[in-house]
Simulated scan of single mutants.
Amino acid sequence: MSETEKVYQELNTTISAAEAQLIAVSKTHPQERIMELYELGHRDFGENRVAELVEKHEALPKDIRWHFIGHLQRNKVKAIAPFVHLIHAVDSERLLREIDKQAKAADRKISVLLQFHIAEEASKYGLDREKAGALITSLKEKPLTHTTISGVMGMATFTDDEAQVTAEFESLAEHFKWIQGTIPGQSPEFREISMGMSGDYPLALAAGSTLVRVGSLLFGQRYT
């Protein structure tokens, strides 16, 4: 058993036991590394650059479920709309409306997560309660037609303070509970909490994460 296979099996066992799903964050890593996990049966991979995601989608097996996990610009939505499985970081109504527009043009439904700002770092993107509430009100007035809001996403502060990270993850779980059932016509699909990465995923699982984004533990350090 290779080191990659060993780490993957251990991670997958731990995450599955918590009734969550592993998203292998393959950004900046070559296609060969993705295929290592693909051959082990893994199908969910995360990318944060549109050009790189499109290139990998075109080159790799079409049953891969691609997750876009980075900050997405509205003018880049069209490029991934025909195939993306889940967009994790929707942080504005304008972006959400553009996704809905491009999903309609691609004749498909796209699932998204609303990103909340839960960290201390101001550099991180995300909604707060007030902006999320205004977004929900707008959706009630003008519902989405080709986009499904499937849950929430957040990134904790990059710190060794586990108590702080846990509190931030718990705050995202509270945002999830608060917003659940308020999005018209989409409550059954609203079930995902995307939080936790290589350095803090055990804390995220304990706080209720359903999608864990792990990169460096699986692939090593980034290439760029």
Rank of each mutant, 00 (worst) to 15 (best):
T4E: 09
T4I: 07
E5S: 11
E5N: 06
K6R: 12
Y8C: 04
N12K: 15
T13A: 13
T13N: 13
T14A: 10
T14Q: 10
T14M: 02
S16Q: 12
E19Q: 09
E19S: 06
I23N: 09
I23W: 11
S26A: 06
S26M: 04
H29R: 14
P30Y: 02
I34N: 00
M35C: 01
L37R: 07
G41M: 01
H42D: 04
R43K: 13
D44T: 14
D44N: 10
F45K: 02
G46W: 13
E47I: 01
N48Y: 11
E52N: 03
V54K: 03
E55K: 08
E58G: 02
A59M: 06
A59F: 00
L60M: 07
R65G: 03
R65L: 01
H67M: 13
F68T: 10
G70K: 10
H71L: 06
K76M: 02
V77N: 08
V77A: 01
A79L: 09
I80F: 07
P82W: 07
V90Q: 14
D91S: 15
E93H: 06
R94F: 00
L95V: 13
L95W: 12
Q102G: 04
A103G: 05
D107P: 01
R108L: 06
V112C: 11
V112I: 15
L114A: 10
L114E: 14
H117E: 09
A119H: 10
A119E: 04
A122L: 08
D128V: 08
R129K: 13
R129V: 11
E130S: 00
T137D: 01
T137L: 01
T137M: 00
S138D: 01
S138R: 11
K140A: 05
K140T: 03
K142I: 09
P143S: 04
H146W: 03
I149F: 10
S150Y: 11
G151K: 15
V152A: 11
A156G: 11
F158G: 00
T159E: 05
D161I: 12
E162C: 00
E162T: 13
A163S: 09
A163T: 14
V165R: 15
A167V: 12
F169H: 14
L172I: 15
A173H: 14
H175K: 15
Q180C: 04
Q180R: 15
T182Q: 14
P184S: 05
Q186A: 01
S187D: 12
S187R: 15
P188C: 04
R191A: 07
R191D: 03
R191L: 04
E192F: 11
E192V: 12
I193L: 10
M195S: 05
M195H: 12
M195P: 06
G196V: 05
G196N: 08
S198I: 07
G199N: 09
G199W: 06
D200S: 01
D200E: 01
Y201F: 13
P202Q: 06
L203P: 04
G208H: 13
G208C: 07
T210E: 07
R213K: 10
R213H: 11
G215K: 10
S216L: 02
L217A: 04
L217T: 11
L217D: 03
L218G: 00
F219P: 02
Q221F: 01
Y223T: 07
